[in-house]
Amino acid sequence: METLSVGEKLSALRKMKKLSQKKLAELTGITQPAISAIENNQATLGIDRAKILAKALACHPAVLLFPDLTI
């Protein structure tokens, strides 16, 4: 089983919710370039951003912070 990176997990969850990076940025207040950087593993997610993104994506923050974690 292949492990996803934090960025890959964020991207997958965002696409499952049929959200563009721009729409997710509008929902969260996190800039689209920042979301892009996280998805491309060029920036770290951090707990605060994980909480904000998880709320918008209707998941637990741990799902984003620990992408190979099964809840």
Rank of each mutant, 00 (worst) to 15 (best):
M1G: 12
E2G: 06
L4Q: 09
S5K: 02
V6N: 01
V6C: 07
V6M: 06
V6I: 14
G7Q: 09
G7L: 09
G7R: 06
E8L: 08
E8Q: 15
E8F: 06
K9E: 05
K9F: 03
L10Y: 06
S11G: 12
S11D: 14
S11Y: 13
A12E: 15
R14L: 13
R14W: 10
K15C: 05
K15W: 03
K15D: 05
M16D: 15
M16I: 11
K17C: 11
K18M: 12
L19W: 04
L19S: 06
L19D: 00
S20G: 12
S20L: 04
S20E: 07
S20M: 04
S20Y: 02
S20Q: 05
Q21L: 10
K22E: 15
K23C: 01
K23G: 00
K23M: 11
L24F: 08
L24M: 10
L24D: 03
E26C: 04
E26L: 13
E26T: 06
L27A: 08
T28E: 03
T28A: 05
G29T: 00
G29V: 02
I30W: 01
I30G: 00
T31H: 05
T31N: 06
T31S: 15
Q32E: 15
Q32T: 07
Q32P: 09
P33I: 11
P33L: 11
A34V: 10
I35D: 03
I35Y: 03
S36R: 13
A37F: 09
A37M: 12
I38P: 00
I38C: 00
E39K: 00
N40L: 14
N41I: 04
N41L: 08
Q42H: 09
Q42C: 02
A43M: 13
T44D: 15
T44A: 12
L45V: 00
G46C: 14
I47N: 04
D48G: 10
D48M: 13
D48L: 14
R49L: 01
R49S: 09
R49M: 02
K51G: 01
K51W: 05
K51V: 09
I52C: 02
I52M: 05
L53E: 02
L53K: 00
A54P: 01
A54V: 01
A54M: 05
A56I: 07
L57G: 08
L57A: 09
A58G: 06
A58Y: 14
C59N: 03
C59Y: 06
C59S: 05
C59L: 08
H60M: 10
H60A: 14
A62D: 15
V63I: 15
L64D: 11
L65Q: 12
F66S: 07
P67N: 03
D68I: 03
L69K: 10
L69R: 11
I71H: 11
I71L: 14
I71S: 09
